Amino acid sequence: MKRRADIRFELRHLRYFGAAAEQGSFRKAADGLQVQESAISRRIRDLEDQIGASLFIRHAGGVTLTLAGQRFLTRARSALSQLDEGAREVGSIGRSEIGYIRIGLFSSIASGFLSKLFTAYDAQCPNIEMIFQEGSAEQNLSLIDKSQLDLAFTIGNLQPHRYDALELWRERVFAAIWDAHPLSAKSELDWSDLAYEAFLVRPGGPGDEVREYLSLRLNGIGCRPRFLTQNIGRYRLLGLVASRRGVAPMLASETTISIPGVVYRPIVGEILPFFAIASPKNDNPAARTLLSFARTLSRSDRSPS
């Protein structure tokens, strides 16, 4: 049995056919579409040749759909409607009206720069879903490399990578201590004050980065830090601080967490830069819009938290 060749036609064939069917005239269809009548007639003839059936009965008063034409019109209208809907949907994505962003985080979004950024972005782009994942800079860079994150907000920019890095804000570093701790009498702390404290940290992800940071600072004054790894969330970690099981390093944006029995003291001279990391090949328009918001907010909010 001979296999029939695939039918091939262009979108304009369907639009010309639909206009002619609606107007009952090639001439009126041509006027409405602002093309030559001959173009309408020729394209519809091509369409009929491809399909293998006459779609119109031509007569002096215009054209009338054949039975085949009536059946094809139903399908053509459905196809055009789906294409138009698809074009509107894609256009909405391109204008950042709908879509999603996958974001890697280190610090809290409850307050500070990120809180203001996401609040402003939500107000402008309410239909964009933001999907968050907490991790270290190394982990976030790996996920960007695999196209599993659109962008990441990280402490520092020391990990080697080939992506765009934009410094957005800076935050002071604090120590969370229990309220009866001898150091609570001081308004600021030096690293030497914390040399013999037990540091409560979380495992993996940001916890690895915290341990590395504390080791660098305390090794610099000749001390070896002692870590107590706790597989719990940040809020419960502060509960352990209140129960005098250790101290915890905190960012300024995290000191808004109020826990009975816990006080925060800044560490002298410790201010950390935060960067937005994104691949220049990332074509998510919602992510590009978020970065634009971040640049604007950064210019108006340069002082450390």
Rank of each mutant, 00 (worst) to 15 (best):
R4Y: 10
A5D: 11
R8H: 10
R8N: 09
R12E: 15
H13S: 15
L14E: 08
Y16C: 05
Y16K: 07
E22P: 01
K28F: 06
A30P: 02
L33E: 10
E37C: 04
I40E: 00
R43N: 08
L47P: 00
A53M: 09
S54H: 10
L55Q: 06
V63Y: 07
G69C: 01
G69Q: 00
R77A: 01
R77Y: 01
S78T: 10
S81W: 14
Q82A: 10
L83F: 13
E85D: 13
S92A: 11
S96N: 07
I103M: 01
F106Y: 07
S111L: 05
G112S: 04
F113W: 01
L117F: 01
Y121C: 06
D122N: 13
C125Y: 12
Q133N: 11
A137F: 01
A137E: 01
N140D: 04
N140G: 03
I144L: 15
S147G: 13
G156P: 08
Q159V: 15
Y163S: 01
A165N: 01
E167C: 05
L168F: 06
R170I: 09
R170V: 05
R170G: 12
E171C: 08
R172F: 09
H181D: 15
E188Y: 03
D190I: 06
D190P: 05
W191N: 01
D193L: 02
L194M: 03
A195S: 04
Y196S: 10
V201T: 15
G207L: 00
L214S: 04
S215T: 15
R217W: 12
L218G: 04
P225K: 02
P225V: 00
F227H: 08
F227Q: 12
I232T: 14
G233A: 05
R234V: 13
L240F: 12
L240Y: 09
V241I: 03
R244F: 05
I257V: 08
G261D: 02
Y264D: 13
Y264R: 09
E270S: 02
E270N: 02
L272S: 09
P280K: 03
N282I: 09
D283N: 14
L290H: 02
L291S: 09
R295L: 12
R295M: 06
R295T: 15
S298G: 08
S298K: 05
P304N: 02
